[in-house]
Design a protein around this nucleic acid. Sequence first.
DNA 1: ATACGGACTTGATTCTACTACA
DNA 2: TGTAGTAGAATCAAGTCCGTAT
Length: 941
Amino acid sequence: MSVENPACDNDCDTGKVNGNKSEHVNGIHNGYNSSEKHKSSHKSSSKDKHRDKERDHKSSSKHSSSSRDKDKDKSSSSKNHSSSHKSSSKDKERDREHKDRDKHKEKDRSEKDKERSDKDKDRHRSDKDKHKDKERSDKEKHRSSDGEKKSSSSKDKEHKSKDRDHDKDRHRSDKDKRRSEKDRHSSSKDKHSSSRHKEKSSSEKQEKVKSEPDDSSSIKQEPMEVDQFKSDQEVKRHEKVKNEIEDDGYIGVNTTASSYDFSMSQFKDDPLAELPLEDDSASGEEAREEEDKPLSRRITPKKRAASESEEDTPLLQRKKTKKKVKKDVFDEEEEEEEAPRKKKKKPEKNKAMKSIKTEPHENTSPTKRKKKGEEEEQEVWKWWEESKKEDGTKWHYLEHKGPLFAPPYELLPENVKFRYDGKIMKLSQDTEEVAGFYARMLDHDYTTKSTFNSNFLTDWRKVMTHDEAKVIKDLAKCDFKEMQQYFLSVSEKNKNRSKEEKAALKAKNEEIQKEYGFCTIDGHKEKIGNFRIEPPGLFRGRGEHPKMGMLKKRVMPEDVLINCSKDSKIPKPPPGHKWREVRHDNTVTWLASWTENVQGQAKYVMLNPSSKLKGEKDWQKYETARKLHKCIDKIRDTYRADWKAKEMRIRQRAVALYFIDRLALRAGNEKDDDQADTVGCCSLRVEHIELHKEKDGKEYVVVFDFLGKDSIRYYNEVPVEKRVFKNLEHFMENKKDSDDLFDRLTTQTLNEHLKELMPGLTAKVFRTYNASITLQRQLDELTDPDATLPEKILAYNRANRAVAILCNHQRAVPKGHSKSMEALKEKIQVKRDQIDEAESDLHDAAKAAKRGSVKEKLACDKKKKALERLKEQLMKLELQETDRDENKTIALGTSKLNYLDPRISVSWCKKHGVPIEKIYNKTQRDKFRWAIDMAGPDYVF
DNA sequence: ATACGGACTTGATTCTACTACA
DNA sequence: TGTAGTAGAATCAAGTCCGTAT
């Protein structure tokens, strides 16, 4: 199947290809070492590496499960050199642990194999086959032998036979291979950045448009499916749900949980889709206005720093021009709100803010909400009912207590020894602290990676005393075992704390939260998101991060910038310390910041998502997405037309945009070599796609396979239009695997172009837009107004899931998943038996009732009711089963929190009488308070 | 033009607290 | 009452995008 944006279904073949997301392996492709990567200044090196990696990963995936096991064994024995000779006692211990883990893994593996093969089977099935499946009973399915499944799965495309655990194992072993391979390659590493440039010019010459038949006229507008991987359970559920519900029109043509139908006609019927594009001239003017903004009006940090005295100059004026544009946009959108919005008089905020403490502003409309239990009444600031600030400043008054620093290091007890080369060694405080960071991670896979180990050792030696550094040179000779044991025992002790201790601790934490967790902003008390400064530790990059294992240093007040109102009570640094700087910049939202030493990036203390500052921005984000909805047709027409453009630059842009729109890919900024090698749309390389004129019965299939954000694998097989396909072929001509696919395109140029199409439009808006519109359409499609509450919730989760799949949001299979599924299944079986029993009981009772007395009739009624109750319970359990299984590898949270316009969910809840608590938990309700308050049942995205 | 860095959002993982169950 | 499992919260890495410096 192709996972794609259902809203953008105007172009491709009807078919779905069985790509699948289930095996987008989570961050686990990191298994090869790239410690040398950052040393090489040539991008090609990392790219080559990546190619190697992918090659490996392709070939390795061909392994049968047994060879995988072998690999695994190999890997455990072939851990990198330095870590392989850790002290023998440690090894034993770890071995034991590994064995335990392996046992579990083995179990999991066999199960996963089964599941995977099921999935694979399903995935590759033609539609006809799928229909056959529908007819097959789940019992039959379960009976079918594992072996059979395996053999069928092994025929499947290699990629698909993966899941996280396997990958982890495999990669660990493949790592070494890769390393050696890489080394081999490294000598021949091409400096392709320069070669790429050369090629650019050469390919420029080739870029005459080949006259292709205009196939745009033959756009197929048949329904397109976002099909997901199907599993055993899905088929099973499919049957159940289909039988029970489909007749009622509960679910569309294909009722598989994972196959959603999206039809263009539906799209076209959308009244909003037909709305004319916004006035171009107006938007052009806005853009011009933006451009016209004098540089002098803009604030630079330098300026800021240079002129502490300048603080008083009205900052609000500085960004006025820009913000005016924003404001216009926003206001315009606000008018479209169907939720009645009482416009309140704008409070005068910038005067005498000092005097305002935590009292709610008189002009705001706080409502009082009684929270359950002891919780006192909480003021709710309905900022969304106020008009927006026009001047672009983020606040007028800001007061807070400053960040909370990590607790100081506590020395280990005397009896906890560190040994080097078998000999006890007393470490200095700093050295011991850093050693402790490593000891805590001993159980983690990280410590088996040589990049991690070498980075750690390097940084560790930096904090050592001269004498220590003279001795400690080989990590393999270090024995952290006692330290690790100690930490484990401490955490064990913490777990077993008495009630009183726990209560005391809780109280203490609440106290801290009370003191540091809130700030006063424009007269309102608001929650801070992360008031704790990150404690020191070892950097844990995701994927193959060249800096993993480096020491994240302790942040001192001298490193911290404080941002607050000049006239506020300025937070006091801890005794004996000073802040690095106190500034009063109300054009930013952070309260404190510091620079982290590993990547040199700024870290910020910011407000909680429930705050006005964050909420307003969030709201605005969805408004931009809604605006895109109005001109999406035109934009799609534009990029389709651009596929035929003369200029390569424009064609590349158009094809990239098509991917971003249809597949919800991320923009894909350029990355440095000292980061993990991951890509997005604009940074895709030739090696990341494969073109198939024909694949699995589909024409013009593009296979994407790359590591995206967080090194999460994106794998998708997508049938595209011929013109896109031809363009891609053209883009790939005369290029090496490691060359950029879109060599004339950067995120900047793409976004510039998008800005011209619609003010405020950037690549990421497409993700938001497509996620939200998908949710809305899915909800419309999947919700049966007459369904029971659990069914409705299942429908919601499915709609949510469709989005998560579109966005490729994955998670590791929860630890006890298979176990808990089994338990659930057992429960269901028990329930079924009960129902059988109840049915026969009822049968008897009915007979008796026919003959007779009132008493018997009553008994019969009673039995009837009991049976109904049981059936209801069964259905609930079954729904739970489906939901849980479908969610196994998919993370719903991210899309719920970041991509789905909450008003869609809120209106759905209101329309269908679903309590909002069933959809949003407390934090989410806090974050989306504005939406809950504002959206009525008729809200349309 | 492009490199760089600031500010903010997005995202998976890890920690913790709570809940359901034996 | 203790425990396992899970949901929710916290954490912090890794993106996007924008403006400025070079």
